[in-house]
Write a protein that binds this DNA or RNA. Structure first.
Lengths: 200, 200
DNA sequence: TTTATTTATTGAACACCGATCAATTTTGTG
DNA sequence: CACAAAATTGATCGGTGTTCAATAAATAAA
């Protein structure tokens, strides 16, 4: 039986999120089980509820961890890119999703109760990712159009997301699309052309 | 107790799908229950399994119904549009999703077991929607580029999907995007510009 | 140290879920 | 009517999220 001196509250939280995230990566959102997480870290199911309050908050914490990893991955990939930065950014989006498909998919499988807003820290993590992409995009935009960066970032994130989602869920395979990343990158370039000198 | 002469097998299937779809619209994928469907149509849970074989096949049948309704809606909306057909198409995509958010979301919440392909008739329904969009898009493409229509259709469906998904799941609200439809339409136009005479 | 109080942890109990399948009922047939 | 075939049932199983009185452990007070 776990004694409370074995772990501080913060350590326990970390254990649960860590094992929860591992579980999520392994079995995916549909087969995820809070009981199983409790069993694996040697605590009872009741303790998980004491720490997180509800199943939904546990999932949010695990998804938050995924966002942390995603941001770290994006920044790492963008830090040491030599050539085409836009390609690198889209490629990083796709590659993270492919390498962590269950955890990545869980970000969008989970939905809050109608009308409820995500916790503050979750929103912060998501905004951090969007900001990283916006910085990247701003570099591709002529100075006179830099005010378009925020809206364009949101729109292009949605664009890339759509392609990535269809690539992972089988829709593209069903429709015979075999180069989703290239297609997404084309759409990003098309959008940027709107604000750049025309193709010659 | 329901007697089999009361309904043919096909009628029973129809009852289950109809009530199942109604349930899906009301409570969404996460709270959907096959038992509840059985109860509401006055049959036992066992009968549902005899008819559909598994929970997954029931969901596929219900999602197939959603695809039917979606296609019908798209065609109806495109049939009597006077002005901007592109706007009408994107608007129809968004509006159906908004008007049937639970059923529409369920299309993407459900995932087949790893490596399994969707049933033939489900693939056919999906292809029918894609084809309808492709016909629309082909009309916007210069004849010399009509060979690009299939790939461009897949890519723009993903693009619009991404925007619609973020609009429904709260991501856009979180990021301060208040005109997702307009953004999606911009991206569609940007992509078409690649194959048209440049803006003046 | 011993006692009292606060905090952490437990796990049985509850109400559900998808899934199974032997038993039953209903239907069709000879 | 009797019999075979088909349809329907629902108790049963193993699992889920959730609750919360009871217990154990840690801390504070005496």
């Amino acid at each position: 039986m776990a004694r409370r001196s074995d772990h501080t509250r913060a350590e326990l939280r970390e254990m649960i999120i860590g094992e929860g995230h591992r579980q999520m990566e392994e079995v995916g959102f549909a087969r995820f089980s809070a009981r199983e997480v409790a069993k694996r870290i040697g605590y009872s199911i009741g303790t998980l509820y004491n720490v997180f309050g509800s199943y939904d908050h546990l999932i949010l914490a695990i998804n938050g961890r995924t966002l942390d990893l995603w941001l770290a991955y994006l920044e790492r990939r963008l830090a040491d890119v030599k050539g085409d930065r836009l390609h690198a950014a889209v490629d990083a989006y796709f590659r993270f999703a492919l390498d962590h498909r269950h955890a990545w998919t869980a970000l969008f499988d989970f939905r809050l109760a109608e009308g409820e807003a995500p916790p503050e820290d979750y929103a912060v993590k998501l905004t951090a990712i969007v900001d990283a992409v916006e910085r990247e995009l701003a570099g591709e935009l002529p100075p006179e159009h830099s005010d378009k960066a925020p809206a364009l970032t949101r729109s292009l994130l949605a664009t890339v997301h759509g392609h990535c989602f269809f690539a992972l869920n089988g829709t593209f395979e069903l429709l015979g699309e075999d180069a989703p990343l290239a297609a997404a990158l084309d759409r990003v370039r098309d959008a940027l052309d709107r604000y750049r000198q025309k193709r010659e």
